[in-house]
Design a protein around this nucleic acid. Structure first.
Length: 770
DNA sequence: GAGTTTGAAACT
DNA sequence: CAGTTTCAAACTC
């Protein structure tokens, strides 16, 4: 049974990998045939699982990783490490000493693996390719882990094997393991852990664990969560403890190990989804395990063992918790960090931790980034003009996965950005690519420099922030500076940052700002409220088809103004010739939807004469009435297309928290224009915040084109109603462009087929909420 | 930097 | 839905 099952299991695991979370859930159910999971398989599965977890909460992994990194300063060189191991380490760290030995290996390995795993997860989301890579790597990593130089990989392998081999026990254990592992692919980890546990590896790790425990709130949180889980399922928890000792006492306790793993994995899975859920799942797992391994439960001589178990469980929990925590942790961290800079805070924490722990900040960052992905990125991104730059770098770096890269980059780049990175990641690696392309493009180049600097800064972590602050990158300076809200608490659309879906950061001069990661909940709630009123509230105000000219499939000419303001302006005194006019500010011509008086918008007048300035040309052309009509028709069609894209994209993107803010150099001040610009390209949507100022008229005409690249703060989007994609008529009857749906501009916006939304004649049905 | 203008956002 | 108020950016000095 065992051996054959093992094979099956392995295959099954691979399957699971495909849909880790779901699989995991399934696995949780005892239904699944018990399998002695092969270590390798488990590893693979783990790796795979991680990706799914990523889906749930990629961020979490990142955190874990970061933590691990910290912990592990020493070893992690092994790239391919089992996430499981890492996880284990983490958990072990929490608890401790006994596990520590194991944790060591694990930790180091975990770090890498975790990172990878995280990355994988992210990647999986974003890129299938990356996933594949990870999967590939994972196995290797696992191997490495097992035999990883630093750590005692072999042991793990052995353990795993032994476990598998174990007959009766193994069967039961395996079953558990499988369940747990399955989803997370924790098996490998478990095995590793078990092995590690068995072996004294952990010793070094012990220290790490301790450090981890100390490390940070994250760890603490995890631990707490873990503990809570453990405790809740008293039986299970006890079991764990018991098991642990047993394992130690009884070297073989593969079962125990399995148990742990299973639990951990299960917990992890759950964690990914929800902490509470995780806990429950864990409990269940434990119970099961305990049931299966009654002996283990009973025997728990050594706390260490318990620790191990706990650690193991923690791992799973951790990850999930991490993910889960990410939000919470972030909050916490944010709170902490917030003191300094809201966005940076979390990053800082992580960074600090990471720094402490290890050199591989990247990983940590990436990890962090992943976790945080939830939401905050906006800030990170925003401040960045850099964001783009970062992404680019990532891309350029071509590290593992674009996602990972992006995440890592974001993280590194923007301390706060981690969140962003996540988002971006979630979106897709493609974006990054696109971004890179886009970013690279024109306008931002100028900004890029600063951005890069910022990025670099980010990499260094702490320095990043400083640099940012200290260095106002050209664009960034502006970008950095965002709002100056005094009464709105930055929780209203008055606040540019909030409106842009970005957290306020240091550069902001706002007072009583609540638009910080610390107040993420508040921010999200507020957003929801606002969106409930106006689904497009956070949508880019200006939808621009990519630059009309280049892009197109559509005649550039036809697109008078490359873009249109979603609602249209209502200018009375500015004649739409000043930034008071959102249309003008957005570098787009006024359209029929505008209620402006005396429109003289250089980009195009609403009367149709709108000078449509082809973006490239920027100049307004006098309108082409003909064009106007055609455009409208086109726009409609395009719009629909766009909507489709948006919808698809929206759906795809879990959270759009982050918007990379491109630092658009705006006019003199250089602040990004209020309105976001959304460019729709065939490839994707990007919404840029204000950053982009398309207008040539503006300080930077290029920005326009390039600007489009800005990604909307997807975070917000995510939060924001999915509606975004949908075009809706504004409440006012104004046109509403799909805000959220940001189409990622292809790397080459221009080049890409663009859907030009310009003026949207009407958003008929789609408008969800007028 | 302070004050004014402007129009969007929010409120009624 | 319209009118009013609030708000913060844009602008001016």
């Amino acid at each position: 049974m065992d051996t054959p099952e093992r094979n099956q299991i392995s295959t099954a695991l691979s399957k699971f990998e495909d849909s880790p979370v779901f699989n995991y859930i399934n696995n949780l159910s005892p239904i699944r045939p018990v399998k002695s999971a092969h270590i390798t398989q488990t590893f693979n599965s783990l790796s795979f699982s991680s990706p799914p977890s990523v889906f749930t909460s990629p961020h979490v992994t990142s955190f874990k990783e970061s933590r691990f990194l910290r912990r592990h300063n020493p070893p992690s060189p092994l790239k391919p490490k089992d996430s499981s191991e890492d996880v284990n380490k983490v958990y072990s760290n929490d608890e401790a000493s006994a596990d520590s030995t194991l944790s060591h290996h694990n930790s180091s390995e975990l770090h890498e693996s975790a990172d990878k795993g995280i990355l994988v997860g992210d990647v999986s989301i974003a890129l299938s390719i990356e996933q594949t890579k990870f999967s590939d790597e994972l196995p290797q990593s696992l191997q490495y882990n097992c035999g990883s130089p630093g750590y005692d990989p072999p042991l793990c392998c052995d353990d795993g094997n032994s476990i598998l081999e174990l007959p009766s026990e193994a069967a039961s254990d395996v079953g558990f393991v499988q369940e747990g592992c399955k989803t997370d692919s924790a098996e490998p980890e478990l095995h590793l852990q078990g092995t590690s546990q068995i072996d004294p590896k952990g010793e070094g790790s012990d220290c790490d664990w301790d450090g981890l425990l100390h490390n940070g709130a994250d760890l603490l949180i995890e631990e707490e969560a873990f503990k809570g889980l453990m405790q809740k399922p008293l039986g299970s928890s006890l079991r764990l403890c018991d098991y642990v000792p047993l394992q130690q006492s009884a070297c073989n306790n593969d079962q125990n190990v399995h148990m742990v793993d299973s639990v951990a994995s299960a917990s992890e899975h759950e964690i990914e989804n929800h902490c509470s859920e995780l806990v429950v799942a864990v409990n269940t797992d434990h119970t099961q395990d305990s049931l299966a391994n009654g002996s283990f439960l009973t025997s728990n001589p050594n706390e260490k063992m318990d620790n191990q178990l706990v650690s193991v469980t923690h791992r799973g929990i951790r990850r999930r918790c991490l993910d889960f925590e990410m939000a919470g942790v972030r909050k916490n961290s944010d709170d902490n960090s917030n003191t300094g800079s809201s966005t940076a805070q979390s990053e800082v924490r992580n960074a600090s931790d990471d720094k402490q722990l290890l050199p591989a900040k990247r990983n940590a960052n990436s990890q962090k980034g992943i976790l945080p992905g939830i939401g905050l990125h906006l800030n990170a991104l925003a401040p960045l003009k850099d964001g783009t730059g970062i992404q680019n770098r990532n891309l350029t770096s071509g590290r593992q996965l674009s996602l990972t890269n992006s995440t890592s980059l974001l993280l590194s780049a923007c301390q706060e950005n981690q969140h962003l990175s996540i988002v971006s990641v979630s979106v897709s690696s493609e974006r990054e690519l696109d971004l890179s392309g886009n970013d690279v493009q024109p306008a931002e180049d100028s900004s890029l420099v600063p951005a890069y600097t910022a990025d670099e800064d980010f990499n260094p972590n702490s320095p990043k922030k400083k640099k940012r602050k200290s260095e106002p990158v050209g664009d960034t300076s502006e970008g950095c500076k965002r709002c100056n809200c005094k009464k709105s608490k930055c929780l209203k659309l008055y606040c540019e940052c909030f409106a842009a879906g970005v957290y306020c950061i240091e550069p902001c001069s706002c007072q009583d700002c609540f638009n910080k990661p610390v107040h993420e909940d508040t921010v999200l709630q507020t957003r929801k409220q606002i969106e409930s009123r106006n689904p497009l509230a956070f949508a880019p105000k200006v939808i621009r088809s990519a630059d009309s000219v280049p892009e197109i499939g559509i005649d550039p000419n036809k697109t008078p103004a490359s873009a249109r303001h979603k609602r249209g302006c209502n200018c009375k005194k500015s004649s739409c010739l000043k930034k008071y006019c959102e249309c003008y500010q957005g570098g787009v011509g006024c359209s029929i939807g505008c209620r402006c008086e005396g429109c003289k918008n250089a980009f195009g007048r609403k009367d149709g004469s709108t000078s449509i300035v082809t973006e490239g040309e920027t100049e307004e052309e006098t309108e082409t009435s003909d064009k106007g009509v055609e455009e409208k028709a086109i726009q409609k069609t395009e719009f629909q297309n766009i909507e489709d894209h948006l919808e698809s994209t929206m759906v795809a993107t879990p959270l759009r928290i982050s918007r990379p803010m491109l630092p658009m150099p705006f006019s003199s001040k250089g602040k990004p224009p209020r309105s976001f610009v959304t460019t729709i390209t065939g490839s994707g949507y990007f919404t840029s915040q204000k950053l982009a100022k398309p207008n040539p008229l503006w300080s930077q005409p290029k920005s326009f084109q390039t600007v489009a690249d800005d990604e909307m703060p997807e975070i917000l989007r995510g939060d924001s109603s999915p509606i975004a994609c949908i075009k809706t008529s504004s409440p006012n009857g104004k046109r509403v462009s799909s805000p959220n749906c940001e189409i990622r501009s292809s790397p080459t916006r221009r080049g890409g087929r663009k859907l030009i939304l310009q003026s949207i004649p009407s958003f008929p049905s789609l408008t969800p909420r007028p």
